[in-house]
């Protein structure tokens, strides 16, 4: 009888034992995991949850809540002060962003010059940014208090000027709100733009000087085009900052007198935390989110460097 059994060679110690194959995972996945987790859990989830809440009737004055569809958005459209608050917000954001970027650009160009004491000036310029914005709001409220004990009125009295009701006049209150917000925001713009200016190649300026370009022409045709991406960042951050700004407006004017300086951010705060109407506040927040996104897209479209049609 012939044996059919075959001898199976034993694996030598040098041969690899076959292992089950693990799915191949790119290494970069582990590196981006913390960042992705952070964004998903602390940014995207709250934003989406806020949108969900805006579709309910959650009010902390009541037990339980239910889905109500777009009811809160309907309430928002029927709101008597919608036009006023929209005008206030648009005016405030436009003024703050334009002034902040314009002044910030001017200051950063000045600070980029090798003038005497420019290092000290750079440090001093950043000071308003170091102060907590609530403190800034409260301090300026103290300065522009309408009593003769208010600091601004006291200073005016030294020059024989009568008392002014700074924050009781709607136009003046809005102007002060813009001015204080710009004062607080300019240093941030300066930091960004100064960083950008210092990266611009010197050769281009030297070539422009050789070509006989004036200072204005160097700024217009060299500095500005090269600074566009940085300006875009400043505009996006400035717009977001102004649109979502609550601390200074709340501490300085509280939306008053009446609703003369009420912004969407203040309305959101009042609805959510004064009236405890969380879902309505979430609806306002969602609208603000959409406006933010729209503005960012607009900036990207307008300021993104256009690619040449001819790639040759």
């Amino acid at each position: 009888m012939q044996s059919t059994a075959q001898t199976i060679p034993l694996p030598s110690s040098r041969r690899r034992i076959p292992r089950p194959r693990l799915p191949r995972v790119n290494g970069f996945f582990f590196f981006i995991l913390p960042g992705v987790s952070f964004v998903l859990s602390l940014t995207l989830f709250p934003a989406l949850y806020g949108i969900y809440i805006s579709l309910t009737n959650l009010n902390l004055g009541y037990v339980g809540y239910s889905f109500v569809g777009l009811e809160n958005y309907g309430r928002l459209l029927e709101w008597d002060d919608l036009g006023l608050v929209t005008r206030n917000t648009l005016g405030f954001v436009a003024s703050v962003v334009v002034l902040q970027v314009a002044i910030g650009l001017l200051v950063s160009i000045l600070l980029n010059q090798k003038l005497v004491g420019h290092q000290v000036m750079r440090s001093l310029t950043i000071l308003p940014w170091v102060l907590p914005s609530v403190v800034v709001g409260l301090v300026f409220a103290q300065i522009f208090g309408g009593s003769r004990l208010g600091i601004a009125n006291y200073v005016l009295s030294l020059f024989g000027v009568g008392q002014m009701s700074w924050l009781a006049d709607p136009a003046l209150a809005m102007a002060l709100l813009v001015a204080v917000s710009v004062w607080r925001g300019v240093p941030f713009t300066v930091i960004i733009l100064l960083g950008g200016l210092q990266t611009l190649p010197r050769e281009l300026y030297e070539a422009a000087v050789i070509d006989g370009a004036t200072a204005w022409q160097r700024f217009r045709y060299v500095t500005l085009p090269l600074l566009k991406p940085i300006l875009m960042i400043s505009l996006i951050m400035g717009t977001g900052g102004a649109l979502n700004s609550l601390d200074i407006p709340l501490a300085l004017t509280g939306g008053g007198p009446g609703s003369a300086t009420e912004l969407f951010s203040i309305s959101l705060y009042k609805q959510s935390f004064f009236h405890l109407d969380i879902s309505y506040g979430a609806a306002i927040g969602t609208v603000m989110l959409v406006v933010n996104l729209v503005l960012i897209v607009l900036y990207l479209l307008v300021l993104q460097p256009r690619r040449s049609a001819n790639h040759d």
């Binding site: 004990l149 009781a168 509280g254 007198p257």
Partner: peptide, 21 residues
């Protein structure tokens, strides 16, 4: 009365009272 009262809470009135205004 001053129109400014529309921006004032009770605490904000006191400087006016203290200053004899």
């Amino acid at each position: 009365m001053r129109a400014e009262v529309t921006t004032m809470d009770e605490a904000a009135l006191r400087p006016f009272f203290y200053g004899h205004e």
